[in-house]
Design a binder for these strands. Structure first.
Length: 313
DNA sequence: CAGCAGACCTGTTGGC
DNA sequence: TGCCAACAGGTCTGCT
């Protein structure tokens, strides 16, 4: 569900509430949230060690690369810190998947039935509760080591949570280079849309913003990346960056209550979408009805007049 | 290694 | 009203 603008909206909210705060207690209500979509069997010891690892730690910051978030941790100064050697080497990792929400509540608020984990936090602003709510459980939580991520354009590597190790830089990061990424995409023998969705190449772009970027750049989603001119791919990347920046300004895209920020508020970018979810409606440029096709197993929205198969290399 | 299909979940919506 | 199929913003694994 959430793509870069939505995750960044959540990250900002979490940063406001959690930076410098101490997690006084962590509780896992559904162990599957600690697994992955393909490794659902989470042993009870993992739940115990997750909860134990977080009790009493302090949140240093809230970081993000693409759709991956993580919070570097330090020992919160509780007694008996025999694990001082690990201070600063671990983070609470959080991925929202398709339906994950991070919500800040007062502790006595009723729990939503899809709440999978609850964190009591205490900070300068008082006490509150961070709740991870996830209807479909495609999201993920974990205490992970911090490791060097992929190298940016200048070769520098930021420390990232282990699950984000393979994610490429996102378009909002320092060091993201449109020409470098465009050349990487040009080497791929897949539909340009599939390349945009490959988080190893550029992270943060999901199904909505891929369709929007390709419309804005006038490129048909099924065009093989390897056959497009580099300048065309660069234009697609710039469009992706632009559309995601505009979406972030209005809090992201919400179709329903499944995407909300930490305060439960929806974003307003849905009204600005030009093709996504507009099957059968007139193209904003030429009035041709928008068509929906399936590409790489994902719904894909295209104006066949504005997005002709491209002039090729 | 690259590319693709399928699996992982729960809920909503639309057609008959 | 009921039932069933299709669909949903993502990622991981295992197979060619």
């Amino acid at each position: 569900m959430p793509e870069l603008p939505e995750v960044e909206s959540v990250r900002r909210g979490l940063a406001t509430w959690l930076t410098g705060s101490t997690i006084t207690r962590a509780r896992v209500l559904d162990a599957r949230i600690l697994g992955t979509t393909s490794a659902r069997n989470v042993p009870a010891e993992r739940v115990v060690s997750f909860e134990r690892a977080l009790a009493g730690v302090r949140v240093v910051s809230v970081e993000r690369r693409g759709k991956y978030m993580w919070m570097p941790l330090v020992s919160g100064g509780l007694a008996g810190d025999g694990e001082a050697a690990e201070v600063g080497e671990r983070a609470l990792a959080m991925h929202l998947g398709m339906s994950g929400q991070a919500r800040i509540h007062e502790a006595d608020n009723p729990l939503h039935p899809h709440t999978r984990a609850v964190f009591d936090v205490a900070g300068p602003a008082g006490v509150a509760q961070l709740r991870f709510v996830d209807q479909r459980i495609f999201g993920h939580l974990g205490v992970e080591r911090l490791v060097p991520g992929v190298a940016g354009a200048a070769g520098e590597r930021r420390l990232v949570a282990e699950s984000a190790r393979g994610a490429g830089l996102d378009p909002f990061e320092d060091g993201f280079s449109v020409p470098v990424v465009a050349r990487a995409i040009a080497r791929k023998n897949v539909a340009i849309k599939s390349a945009l969705l490959d988080q190893r190449v550029v992270s943060g772009v999901g199904n909505i913003y891929a369709d929007e970027a390709l419309f804005e750049a006038g490129v048909h989603p099924a065009t093989r990346a390897s056959r497009l001119r580099i300048s065309r791919i660069e234009r697609v990347l710039e469009a992706a960056s632009d559309v995601m920046a505009r979406a972030l300004e209005v809090g992201g895209t919400s179709f329903d209550a499944l995407y909300v920020n930490v305060n439960g508020e929806s974003g307003y970018f849905e009204r600005s979408l030009q093709v996504y979810g507009r099957e059968g409606q007139p193209c904003v440029r030429c009035s041709t009805p928008i068509t929906r096709v399936v590409l790489g197993g994902r719904s894909t929205h295209v104006c066949v007049k504005c997005q002709k198969p491209q002039r090729l290399r």
